[in-house]
Structure formats: C-alpha cells, structure tokens
Nucleic acid binder design. Structure first.
Lengths: 350, 350
DNA sequence: GTGAAAGCGCTAACAC
DNA sequence: GTGTTAGCGCTTTCAC
C-alpha cells in the first residue's frame, strides 16, 4: 500500500505531484501532456508520483490557459410546444432518431476524450441563453440538430464563429459544414420500388411540412412518381410520430380506398400505419405495398418487416463528430460537407 | 451607436469592463454576480459598460476560484452490447424512457442555469474514464440512470463524494438519494384491475430480469396475483423493446392459448404485443385484457388505447434535478429519497 | 532536458 | 460601498 497519500480533503494539485516526484511543476505538466522532451527516468518517477497521489488535473485551470474545454455542445432546436396537455419539454428527445444521433456522436467523441453537453433551444429566451453560453467559451464546438425550417439559430451559431456542424442541408444557407442524406435519391428509390412492383394507386404519409427534410421527401417523391407518369398521389401529413402515422394512414385510406402502394416518410410512422391497414382488411404487401424511410429499429419491429430507405444516421452523426473535431483541431479549416447515399432495404412490406 | 468597442480579437475581460466603467474589477464582479452592496448609480454605469463591450464572463476562470461549474452529468450506465450487428452504442438512448428523463431534468436545470453533460458508461474503460472525469471536478453533481442490477457504478460514484441522485431504488444500497416509482404498488393496481374484470387466466410479459425494476414488477405482480388466489401466471421475458414485446407475446400465446388477461411490463412492449394478439384472432379487451406499464406516448399510440400503470417519469426526473441542486447548494445535505405513487390509467385495452 | 516565473480571468477576503 | 490584493491550478515561454 502506498502510504504517502495525504488523507487531507484538499485536492491534489500539480504542485503536490511535483513535490512528491522531486521535480518542477513544468516537468509534471509535460509528462501529463505527453511531451516528448522528458527524460524517460524522470518520466517514470513522475508517473509513479501521479499514481501515488491519485492526481487528476483540474480542467478549469487547464481551460483557463489553453482556451480549450474538450467538450462540445449538442444543440437541439425545436419549436416551442409546451401546453397544459404536454407540460414537459423535448419532443425530439423521445424520437428514436435522436437516440441514434447521440450514439453516433458518442462513438467518435468518447475515444477522443471529448465530452458532450446537451442543450435544448425552444424559445427566444433559451436561444439567448444558448448563445451567451457558447460565447462564454465553455465548449469548443457545436453540433446542431434543428428540425424546423424557419429557425434563426443556425445563422446565429455561425455568427459565434465557433466550429460547428449542422445535421441537415439547411446549413448550406449559412455556409456551415453539414451532413445529410440525399433525401431525393432516397425517395426516388422508394418510388421506383413501388412502381416496379406494379403499384399505380399511390399514397404517401409525409412528415411535418415545416421541416425541410420532410418537404424534400414529399417533393422528391412526387417528382419521382411524376416521372413514372403518376400524378395523382394522395398525400396526408403526419408528424413523424407513431400515433401520427396511424392517424394519417387512416385518413389516407378513407380518401383513397383503392390504394395499392404507400410511401411513409418515416419508419416510426409506418409502425403506426401498418396496423391500420391490417384493421381495414388490407394485406401487406399483397393489397398494399408499404415503403418506409430511415431503417431504424422500428422497421424490424413492423409486421411485416418493413421495406424501407436506409438513412445511416449513426454513421452520419459519427461523421459530424469527426468533422467537428477536425475544425476544432485546425482552426480556420472549413471541412467540406458530406452527403450520404441512401439505400433501399427490401424486406416484406413491399 | 456605442463606439468604444475594440474590434480586437482578444476576448473582453472583467478588466476591460472595469476600465470602461471607471471602476475596479471587484465592483464589476459584484454587479455580475448580483451582489446587493453596489451603489445603484455605479451599477448602472457598469451595466452599460458590460453591454458596450459585449462582455461575457469566462467560466473556466470562474470555476477555478468558485470550484463550481454550474453543470451536472447525466450518466447512463448500460451493459456492453456492441456487436457486428449493432456496432453503435447507446441502446438506452433510443428508449422513449430516456427522452422523458432528459425532458424532466432539463425542465428544472435550464431555469437554474445548470448545464447537462451526457455521459455513457458501458464497459470497464468508460467507467474508469467517467470516474476520472468526475474527480476532475468538471461537474457539480451527477444523475445516474443505471439499468442493470450488477452495476458497480453506483457504489463508485458514491465514493467520489460528489452530490448524486440515482434513478431507481437500487441506490438504497449505497445510501445515495434516489427517486423511484413504487413498482409493487403499480403492479398491484394492474393485477387488481385484471382480476376485477373477471380475468383468471393470466399471463405477463416481463422486462429483462437482470434489471431490478423489471424484477420487482414481475415479483410484485406474481405476489398480487397469488393474493387473489391465482398461482399459475404464465411468464415470458421481454427486453423492453417494441419487437421484444411482440416476440414475447407470441410465445406467451403459444404456451397459453386460453389467456384472458395480460400484464405487459412496459408500454413499448405492449405496443408490440397488441398486433400479435390481433393477428392471432384475439379481440382486446373482449377476449384478452391488456394492461401496460409507464403511461408513455406509446400507450396512446396503441390500438386500442392502452390501459396502463402511470409512472410519472418527467415529474420524477424533475424531482431528481431538484434534489441534486439542493445537495449542490447545501453541501453535506443528503435529502431524503422520494418514492412516487403510480396510478392506473384506464383506457380501452382492459 | 529542466526549472523559474509569468499569467490565463475571475472571486473573495480584507482594508479603507 | 468600493478598491486592493492574493490566489484558484495550470501551461508556457524563456533561461539555463
């Protein structure tokens, strides 16, 4: 048992380690930061002293001088939606998409020793607080997930000059690096597949049309269908939730009972839509072929398993993390945006 | 237009503000920290100087002296589960439960100006990194969400002496404040309701039996049923996922075709279970009554809407945040744990 | 290769 | 009430 560990409550500092090791603070600092210009023998002594004292560096002190925090912010921006019915915040947090994003980010950030702050912006006040926080320099960069179209936040974050990466192509407008899946190519795959199956009486459950990604999926799908000579696609707007998908499907079927093919703009909505079709006596895929979008877990939970457009969310967010770290490590660099290619995953629903 | 804003790249410091305002750093500091002992006239001058210089305090410098960071860690601890099939991390992050927790925490933390770091622990290495991080004093406290039973992390976090609150009653063992719903009371409600409906041929889809909460739900449910004189409850273990609920329900029905009442230990699993019952020709609730647990959004997305045991996750996590902030503000205080009472929400499935 | 010393930006005694 | 002063714990020139 190493005995020279003071039982005092005062935290161990560099100074303490230096004293135990019999060297200067500077040398200990060098060892900790992996400088190569340290005598191997001394290095060993220092390392032992660090172990013996259970020293851990104080990040605040380090940040103060390095001006780095080794942490980034994951900013989720959504429209204010609190009401008496749903007093709590963060609709996005319960969306499986969010979980995939977090997983993909952490996959890259953790090995890099970079921490992630989770911040929600859903009104004027929180937007102001966020910007102030960012300007305080407590994060080295930001990943922005913004769902809605009219969001002023991307622009404002750009103006902080902090390294940033946006999820979604809207960032084009602000000149910030972004990562996105090629939505139009994705819906084209869905359209081609449905038409290839001989389906002609087509409907679609869309995402909320105030979200650019949802707009693009609808627009792209209609365009693709038009190129196949199909102009009368029935559309109902969903809200990217399970229940919303069910409601939209119900409405779609009511307006267009003869439907034989449906594109649902997210797997989660498809998960809600399928039971509706079953209840209304439609066999999937025999009577109605259904194609989803995302290839999330939900696609496998569907019955039958969902044919869907794969959006590699985890890979995309890992890439966001990499792009951000690169910007942080090479100030001034503005890495090119990355567009991922979707793929059709054919299962049983279409 | 205020003209005395230097266009230099050097960040504005307290010193700068003091110079512009013609006062000392200390006075500026007092104004910023809302000290009452400042002459109103001076205060105004200082505030103008702050505005004119666009000053934002440097948190690292502040933390260095106050030893506070105004941030806490949300630590998610889960078993290592990566594989070739699922290379990405964070199963928990895609669970709607997690989203509700985040929402509830943020609801309290944001108004308090406290930031939240999101940290995942899923193996030995990340556990070590977390503890080291915590000891570096970069957070003022930790909220721990630990799913599994054999987790050494709660104990280890306790040993850091950092203010902490645990989600779930396992924290009893470590003496740390916890917030939990009364699982046994909840499942009792479910059992009573099923029996009250005249159901006697009972089955249950359980959560993973390595999770204490899931164990308690099963154990409590069986106990309650036994008190009603029903000893032959059919049990199948699920995994708290949608697909897992479907699979478990299939198995349950295969083993016990005559079933007339089912308790499913989470709404998400119930969401998967209901379509299975429908496909197998069982009407809900006429043939089989189904009761869930959680009262999450999933309960409303169910068809028919799910009768379920309400677990007020958002309120519970808001309370966790409050308890944590209290500990942080009053060092040494160990606030009593809080147990929330569940309620039965009767909808159409039972 | 190593140490001495300056200072990062802030708060908190302590004088006045 | 306000200013002066002494650090908080660390990195980083700059001598040696």
């Amino acid at each position: 048992m190493t005995a020279d560990v003071p039982q005092s409550t005062r935290p161990v500092t560099l100074e303490d380690v230096a004293r135990v090791a019999g060297v200067s603070r500077a040398t200990v600092s060098r060892v900790i930061n992996g400088a190569t210009t340290v005598d191997p023998a001394l290095r060993q002594v220092v390392e032992q002293a660090i172990a013996a004292t259970h020293y851990v560096p104080n990040r605040a002190a380090r940040s103060l001088v390095t001006r780095r925090t080794d942490s980034i912010a994951l900013v989720v921006s959504e429209q204010e939606q609190r009401s008496v019915a749903t007093p709590f915040i963060g609709r996005m947090f319960t969306d499986p998409y969010f979980g995939r994003v977090v997983g993909g980010l952490l996959d890259v950030l953790r090995p890099a020793g970079v921490q992630m702050m989770l911040m929600l912006v859903d009104d004027e006040v929180s937007r102001g607080q966020l910007l102030s926080y960012l300007r305080q320099g407590h994060v080295d960069g930001v990943v922005l997930v913004s769902a809605h179209g009219a969001d002023p936040l991307p622009q404002m974050i750009t103006e902080t000059r902090l390294p940033a990466v946006h999820a979604g192509r809207r960032a084009q407008l602000t000149g910030v690096t972004y990562v996105e899946v090629d939505q139009r190519a994705g819906v084209q795959l869905a359209a081609d597949h449905l038409v290839g199956l001989g389906r002609r009486r087509i409907g679609t459950v869309t995402g909320p049309q105030d979200m650019p990604a949802a707009q693009e999926r609808l627009d792209g799908f209609l365009g693709a269908m038009a190129r196949h000579g199909i102009d009368d696609v029935a559309c109902v707007e969903g809200d990217f939730t399970h229940a919303g998908g069910a409601a939209a499907m119900k409405q779609l079927l009511a307006g267009r009972p003869g439907l034989d093919g449906v594109f649902v703009a997210s797997d989660l909505m498809a998960l809600g839509a399928l039971p509706v079709l079953a209840r209304e006596g439609r066999r999937v895929p025999q009577d109605v072929a259904v194609v989803g979008f995302d290839d999330s877990n939900a696609a496998l939970a569907c019955d039958p398993p969902l044919t869907t457009v794969r959006q590699p969310v985890e890979e995309m967010s890992s890439e966001m993390a990499r792009l951000l770290l690169r910007q942080i490590n090479e100030p001034g660099l503005r890495p090119p945006s990355v567009i991922f290619h979707p793929a059709l995953v054919v299962r049983e629903s279409a």
